[in-house]
Structure formats: C-alpha cells, structure tokens
Design a protein around this nucleic acid. Structure first.
Lengths: 255, 255
DNA sequence: CACCTCAACTGGTAATACCAGTTCAGGGAG
DNA sequence: CTCCCTGAACTGGTATTACCAGTTGAGGTG
C-alpha cells in the first residue's frame, strides 16, 4: 500500500484548476477572448510554456478554443464542455452536488442496464469468473475507503469488458479514470457499501442467467431502487449542513 | 461558407497521431516504458517541448502515464483508454469499422431513448421550439454533407440540453466534439439522410406527447429499426470493397 | 549482509528567441 | 470618395537551452 496521500500538485495542474474554476464561475464570459498568453502567464505566475500546457488541457475539456493568430476564446461549457467537467461543476457549486449526482445516476442506470443485458448475452465464462473474483476481493476492502473505491471503479470496467462492446468499454474508462482522480462523487457510494455489494452479487446472478431480456428488466428495477436510496441519503446529508469540502464530506459519508 | 478544406496540421497533432497509432497497433507493448523524452523528441523530429505536448494529450486519452523521475509508461487501452479513442481505432483497423459502429449505435440507442424520455418529461417549450427549428434548418442542408453533419451533431446537443440532465449534456458534447473533428464515423449517417430527418420529426412528436413511458417504448423500437437499417447498409459497403480511406469512404457513402 | 548514499537517469519548468497565422489601420489606385 | 491592397503589430506555435526535481539502482560503507 504505497500511501499516495500527498502528491505535490504540479504547477500546470494548479493553473488548470484556477482557470477552469474561473470559467465555470462565469468570470470569463463565454465568447470572450482570454488575455494573450504572455500576459496571462505572468498574471498566473508561471512561464508561458506552463500556461500553454494548461490551455491545451482546457481545450480538450471543451472550455477553450485557441486559434493561431487570433486568440483564445472561451466556449460555453453547456455547448462544448466534455464529460470530464462533471466533477468540477460540483467543486464550483457544492450545493449543486445532489442534482449532479442525480443526473449522473440517471445516465449510469441506462448504461449499466444495457451493459448487464449485453453481458448476459455475450460474456465469456472467463469474464464471468473475473467479475465473481472481483466482487469477493472487493468485499475484503470494505474497511479501506480508498481501495474500496478503486475496486468499485475497476469492477465497472470489468463489467464493460464483459459486454464485448468497445464503445462501452471506452466510455466506462473515461468516467472511471475521471472519478479515480476526483473521487468526490464516487464517495457517495460509500454511504451503503454493504448494500452495494449485495447489489453486485445479484447483478452477477442476472448475467449468469444468460437471459438478456429478463436481465434488462430486473436490472432496471434493481438499479432504480438502489439509486433512489442512495440519492435520498445524499440529500439528507445536504439538508442541514453547510457546504462541504472534499475531506469533511468523505469523513461524513464513510462515517 | 469559409471553406476549411486544408487546415495545415500542427506539428503536435502529427506526433500525437503517430504515437497513438503506434500504441494502438501494439508497437509499444502495454506496460512497457517509452524512450526518454529527449530521445523520442529527436526520433520524431520535433523539439522536446512539442513532444511533451503530444505526451500530455495522450495522457488525457488514457494511453500513457508519465511519472516524474521514472519514465512514461504505455497503458493498456482496453483498461484505461477513453472514449475519444473510438474514432482512431477505426483508423488503425479499417476492417473493424462496422463492428465499432455497431458498438457505438448500441450505446447511442440507450442514451437517446433515455434522453427522449427525459425530454418528454422535463423539457421547456423553448427547448421544443429549438428542436423543431433545428430540424427544419437541417433539412435545408441536405445537399452539403459537411454542414449537414455539423447540424446533425448540434441537434444531438440540443436534445441533451432539453433533458435538463447535465451529465447527458456533457456526454453528448464529448462525443459530438469528437465526431466533429473526426467525421469518419458520423459520415455513416449520410447513407440515409432523408430517412434520418423523418426519424427526427417523429422523435419530436414523441417529446411533444409529454408521455415519458410511451416515448421510451416507441423511441426504443424506432431507433432499433433505424440502427438495423443503417448497419446493414454499412456492412454492405464493406463487403466487396477494399479498405477505404476517409475521402473515398465519404464519397461512396454520400453518393 | 543490510543499509545508506550519491551519481545518473527520468520527467517538470523556466527564459528567450523566432516562426507563422490574423487582424486592421492606413495609404495608394481606381 | 470608394475600393483594394499592403504591412506592421498583434495573436498563438515551435525550437533551443538551461536548470530544477523526483526515482532509481549501483556501489560504497557500516
């Protein structure tokens, strides 16, 4: 267990976060032009090179568009912003967390249901064994939140692999890679780790049945119920208390 | 119409493509280390700076992981690769295009069905008007493939916005941003542009009905049929002919 | 033999100069 | 006066060089 608690944040990373937060907060209006790279670099206290690296990343996130000779314009994140923004939106507006989680769960539900159905239809015996192994090993990590979460995300990747659908695999990777680095959202699943494990075991049973239609039907109900409970708990946490930062939230959620 | 036919590819872009293709082709084994940045830069004929920019992008795509002091390792794209790889997988293995398209359609179907249902349930009158406007305007572009595709992708974004689900909006943006730059896959939809427009009009009717459950049921059937037809045509195109490059493929598809 | 240390890797930043598109004001031709 | 065209002065893109900062592992030291 190589404790990765305090990885010193790189300069680029800090600039990215500052700029991203400023844009999401609307301090740079959509459509407006950013200051020139030379100015912005000194303004952020880094070299132009580092500033450029930051801009490049924000470009891939769909927040900026740099045009050679013209300038760097701020895009409307609702029009162009990529899925990687979803965790950072919660950072900018902590009160919006429950709403974002609801949205994310709505998407996860339909994707998970389809994944389960496809897996029931196409997964290999080896895929199935992998999934079973994974769940039993994850159960042992229930005391260690960080490892548990990592295992949880890895399980999602396994399920995607079991579908034989490359698009689903890549999509799962995109989201899990994201949550691995910004676990704030994934932490929500710790509110009922034991229940989640039972849920996984029933999902595996559905896949084992090899009946895609039945799996789809039952999984839809099952996940809808799980999501409702999860969301209710999260909303309850947000009712009385003040806005939470990541650490306090993690502590509260994991009890 | 500012003809954007020949935008000179930037150096970074070329390096990214070469490295990505090499990795996806397996020329750099997963888990292995890349040559040092100094060596790799001279080897690729660019400065170390440019090479670093390329590496940074491949990191966000989930193909590489650079560790300060240690080196840059190649990741297994099936484990970590993000959704942005889906278009490039087709470039590396043109024969796999129909399979990838099938996978992408399977995912699109469930997301689109859910989006339609959510839109029927929550969209504002303004959202609905936007959608209607968009379809009528898109119909006028049927003769101009590039514009038609752009409009098609924009419509997907509008639909996502109409759901009021932020996760869905960002996900739609991620995929459409991708396809805008690498239209190879989106071109498939040109095989039946007229049919697609009819399809859109029926979708809007479903949303207008404001009956989420009915919309979900009918949309699922509708999309399944559209996808089957589309896939059949694409497979037919790939049967007799040799591997196609982008231009030839576009010409063939749009007739 | 175990431990520690240090040199030689590795990637990360900085500073500077220059290349290459875009823009737009200003001047000349009609 | 209008139009076009040119060119300086922006903008982002690349190259070069030097140095900082983690990692690693071989070799010295207890």
């Amino acid at each position: 267990m190589q404790a990765e608690i305090e990885t010193k944040p790189r300069a680029v990373e800090e600039v990215v976060q500052r700029l991203r937060a400023a844009i999401l907060r609307g301090e740079h209006a959509a459509g407006a032009s950013l200051p020139g790279e030379r100015d912005l670099a000194t303004q952020q206290g880094v070299s132009r090179l580092t500033l450029r690296a930051a801009i490049a990343r924000l470009e891939t996130e769909g927040l900026l568009r740099a045009v050679h000779g013209s300038g760097t314009r701020v895009l409307d994140w609702r029009e162009r912003g990529g899925i990687s923004l979803i965790t950072h939106l919660a950072e900018v507006d902590p009160q919006g967390f429950p709403a974002l989680l609801r949205d994310l769960l709505e998407v996860r539900r339909v994707l998970a249901v389809e994944a389960i159905a496809l897996a029931a239809q196409r997964c290999t015996p080896r895929d199935l064994a992998d999934l079973r192994d994974h769940v039993t090993r994850q159960a042992l990590l229930i005391q260690s939140p960080a490892d548990y979460i990592a295992a949880d995300l890895a399980l999602a990747r396994r399920l995607a692999l079991a579908t034989g659908n490359t698009a689903l695999v890549l999509l799962a990777n995109t989201v899990t890679n994201l949550l691995e680095r910004q676990p704030a959202m994934e932490l929500a699943f710790l509110v009922d780790a034991a229940g989640t494990l039972r849920f996984y075991r029933r999902v595996i049973q559905l896949i084992e049945s090899r009946d895609a239609e039945r799996a789809r039907r039952l999984a839809a109900r099952l996940i809808a119920r799980v999501d409702r409970r999860l969301l209710a708990r999260i909303r309850a946490l947000f009712e009385p208390s003040a806005p939470l930062d990541g650490a306090a939230y993690a502590q509260e959620v994991s009890r």
